[in-house]
């Protein structure tokens, strides 16, 4: 089974290594991983798809939350969230060969059905861009393959929650504060 994890991570050296390191060390196979800056440039959003047993999903989230650079870890697998993937596909369809005229037209038709855009075109063929859920992209690939040699680059899944989850952060702690002071500050209550 796959789990879709959404992480909010501090943009610090080694943060990506820590995340992938824990996943690998715990034996969770990474299917895809995307990472990019958020509106706050000191933070990154990662969407990771891992192959784990359903039963282990909460454990993966807990392991992610343990990382000091991880501010928030959410399981989007069944939660209200939207997940999309971008695909760039180059399909070979040489313009000069007479009988290929039809193929080129057909490719463009098919692209339209999938909501794909042509991002490059030359006499060798096209590069198409399409987004969607993974199943749709799989289908698109199957269809395009029937027209000729293809090459594909997938972005990996990106995901956004439909609910705004309150970000729970540890507040600053005062150094040298006694435990009861810390308690008063609500500091250690996470």
């Amino acid at each position: 089974m796959v789990e879709i994890i959404s992480l909010l991570v501090e943009n610090k050296p080694g943060a990506l290594m820590r995340v992938t390191g824990v996943l690998v060390a715990r034996g969770y196979n990474i299917e895809s991983l995307t990472v990019a800056r958020t509106l706050d440039p000191t933070l990154s959003r990662m969407t990771i798809v891992v192959d784990v047993d359903d039963r282990l999903r909460p454990q993966v989230i807990k392991q992610m939350n343990k990382l000091i650079n991880v501010l928030q870890a959410q399981d989007h697998t069944e939660a209200p969230a939207v997940s999309r993937e971008l695909l760039l596909l180059r399909v070979r369809a040489i313009a000069t060969e007479g009988q290929n005229k039809d193929a080129r037209t057909a490719i463009l038709k098919e692209a339209e059905i999938f909501g794909a855009r042509v991002v490059a075109s030359n006499i060798e063929g096209f590069v198409l861009e399409v987004t969607g859920d993974p199943e749709k992209l799989d289908e698109f690939i199957d269809v395009m393959r029937s027209y000729g040699e293809i090459e594909v680059t997938r972005s990996g899944m990106v995901s956004v929650s439909l609910e705004s989850k309150k970000l729970k952060l540890a507040p600053p702690i005062t150094r040298g504060a006694t435990q009861s002071e810390e308690e008063e500050n609500g500091v250690l209550n996470g």
Binding site: I68, V70, L71, K168, G190
Partner: peptide
């Protein structure tokens, strides 16, 4: 005087 590790929650 202060340590702020926002992701270090326990």
């Amino acid at each position: 005087n202060s340590i702020h590790l926002p992701g270090y929650k326990f």
